[in-house]
Write a protein that binds this DNA or RNA. Sequence first.
DNA 1: GGCCAGGACACCA
DNA 2: TGGTGTCATGGC
Length: 230
Amino acid sequence: MPRHNHPAVFSVPQLYRFYRQLFAQLGPQHWWPGRTRFEVIIGAILTQNTNWINVEKTLRNLRRASALTPQELARLPQTELTRLLRPSGYFRQKARKLRHFLHLLQQHYQGLLSRMFRAPTARLRTELLAVNGIGEETADSILLYAGRRPVFVIDSYTRRILHRHRLARANAPYWQLQRLFEANLPRDPQLYNEYHALLVAVGKRYCHRREPDCRACPLRPELEKPYETA
DNA sequence: GGCCAGGACACCA
DNA sequence: TGGTGTCATGGC
């Protein structure tokens, strides 16, 4: 096999077992927390490298300002938008990102989410990735949680958990980790939804950056060897 | 008072 | 291609 083609992940027959174990222990996570598809999209952008608690504060701000539809948000002056976004951090950047998304929606879909989510998944993903401020994780979160498309989301918790369970290299590319899940699971948006949410829940509780609480981790019985965190 | 949080991007070699 | 700095608030 050519050097550049070495797999960064191993074959994973136990991937679905992981899921059942997590679900049995933690139960349904009811993701994505958001009342409408637009809220899900906004939340996906606002939660970038940011605690969800802070995002909720911002969503409350936007709700009070009646700015939780594309049309209403577009009418908000930039200075006002920036002010409302403060609690979730990076507020100047995120104000621009939201504007960029609204621009895509307006230019390609007449400002209508109903039209946007009629587009084929691959095309919509490409368009979302072309928006400055929307990367792979955010695009896939939008596709899965707002669009209910069978696209597995890879976030930092998922990456960390896979690495600590020796299922992937620490620096494996996004698409490889995504393929790992998509190739080993039924192509079911609801399953992808719950699985990713469960991985985040496990990550938050047991798989911290510095001191992973591995003995309490629900996935522990699956482990063959002690962790290597390097 | 430091660390972390459901990233993305520009810039550099 | 891969590494590094930047963006920023709030909770623990």
